[in-house]
């Protein structure tokens, strides 16, 4: 797949070349198998605690700006 380039006007008023719409033709052929990215029990549990932490990690353990002021 080669990148399709297009010309677009920039703040200078001049046209500059930027990357255009470059996609794989057709429709998706496979599922978005994101769960397969977690390949063993350790990774799965880690993801549950960090990604789906709402249910599987005490809210005190959430960090920084993600930590809730009151538990919910």
């Amino acid at each position: 797949m080669t990148d399709k380039m297009i010309k677009k006007q920039s703040f200078t008023g001049k046209k500059v070349e930027i990357l255009g719409e470059t996609y794989e033709p057709g429709m998706p052929a496979e599922k978005g198998q994101w769960r397969k990215k977690l390949r063993n029990r350790k990774a799965m549990l880690k993801y549950l605690q960090s990604g789906e932490r709402y249910w599987y990690l005490d809210a005190d353990q959430w960090c920084g700006s993600e930590r809730r002021k009151s538990k919910a």
């Binding site: 996609y23 794989e24 998706p28 990215k37």
Partner: peptide
């Protein structure tokens, strides 16, 4: 395993999470 397939032209699958990966 983190790399998603390329984005399709039509009826593409959601891409934010996959792109961050």
């Amino acid at each position: 395993s983190l790399l998603p397939p390329p984005v399709r032209e039509k009826v593409h699958l959601p891409y934010l999470g996959p792109t961050l990966d």
